[in-house]
């Protein structure tokens, strides 16, 4: 039982970290909650499905198309909506939520209301000491670590990455260093779309494709921001593990129906006890 919780906790947390990273990035840099973030995840899943299972493209090409869709949609959200409402976070939040609902309807129109089952990205099951995990979710965890590690190296050691952190810490300081904040915002939104789409492919293979699949990842992302506090990538990673493990423990030991509920309760608990999150600081 303990080993099962440990393994499942880690793989679930890895997936959650991957889901949340694109959302927390936007929050750190722009201080807005992008409630359309779940759409990038849904879009990633559906585009991958359409390319692989309907058009018959290879896995790699389907992945690239999903990522491109995420990037495009991320950029469009920023250019058409967020940039025009930037001084007004509440307007951004309302309009991105509306965008998500519109996209949900659009998905139903295009793909129908019936849920779809996605093939796993890779097949096979790993068994160890009576615990079994699919290769697919292990791959998701691996990808999550690679993506997060890459992002961390990017923001630490490259000029562009450092500029993103600079804007998140002190906008005026960044501007007087010659950084164009709108360019940085575009890069962040594009990356956010890409991360959302990658997470979406794995999330959809883990559950299934349907038109309201954007809600659950959004809740996970909000939870990671609230539990972790604004900013540090390491903080989000730890937060994702807290959420993943709390969920695994409650579903394994108490009742499987409590999936999701534990996360909500955790959000409220942290809001009451530490409104700034457990690791809150202004850094990305």
């Amino acid at each position: 039982m303990a080993l099962q919780i440990l393994i499942q906790g880690f793989v679930l947390s890895g997936l959650y970290a991957l889901i949340a990273v694109g959302f927390t990035m936007i929050f750190s840099v722009g201080r807005v909650l992008n409630l359309a973030y779940g759409v990038y995840i849904m879009l990633g899943g559906y585009i991958y499905y359409a390319a692989l299972q309907e058009a018959g493209l290879p896995v790699f090409a389907s992945f690239i198309l999903a990522i491109l869709a995420g990037v495009t949609f991320g950029l469009l959200t920023y250019i058409l909506l967020v940039r025009r409402l930037e001084d007004n976070p509440i307007a951004v939040e309302i309009s991105t939520l509306i965008l998500a609902v519109v996209m949900q309807a659009l998905i139903v129109v295009i793909f129908g209301a019936a849920p779809k089952t996605m093939w796993p990205v890779i097949r096979g099951v790993l068994r160890y000491e009576g615990v079994s995990v699919t290769m697919n979710i292990l791959l998701a965890t691996g990808v999550s670590w690679v993506v997060l590690g890459g992002l961390m190296a990017f923001v630490r050691y490259t000029h562009l990455g450092r500029a993103i952190r600079a804007v998140s810490m002190d906008r005026k300081g960044a501007v007087i260093s010659g950084i164009e904040p709108s360019v940085i915002s575009m890069v962040t939104w594009a990356l956010s779309g890409a991360f959302g789409a990658i997470a979406g492919v794995f999330f959809a293979t883990f559950t299934q494709l349907d038109s309201h699949m954007w809600v659950f990842p959004l809740i996970i992302s909000v939870a990671v921001v609230i539990v972790g506090g604004i900013g540090s990538i390491v903080g989000s990673l730890i937060a994702a593990h807290i959420i993943g493990f709390v969920e695994t423990i409650t579903t394994t030991l108490i009742a499987a129906e409590l999936r999701g509920v534990s996360t909500m309760l955790l959000i409220i608990l942290v809001l009451l006890v530490r409104p700034k999150g457990l690791f809150g600081k202004a850094e990305l």
Binding site: H159, R162, A163, A166, D170, G173, S177, K281, A282, E283
Partner: peptide, 18 residues
């Protein structure tokens, strides 16, 4: 308007962005 959670040298490197 320094970047509070960056080291001194990193702050200087951001100054060299252009």
């Amino acid at each position: 308007n320094l970047f509070p959670f960056m080291g001194v040298k990193e702050n200087l490197l951001v100054g060299a962005y252009r």
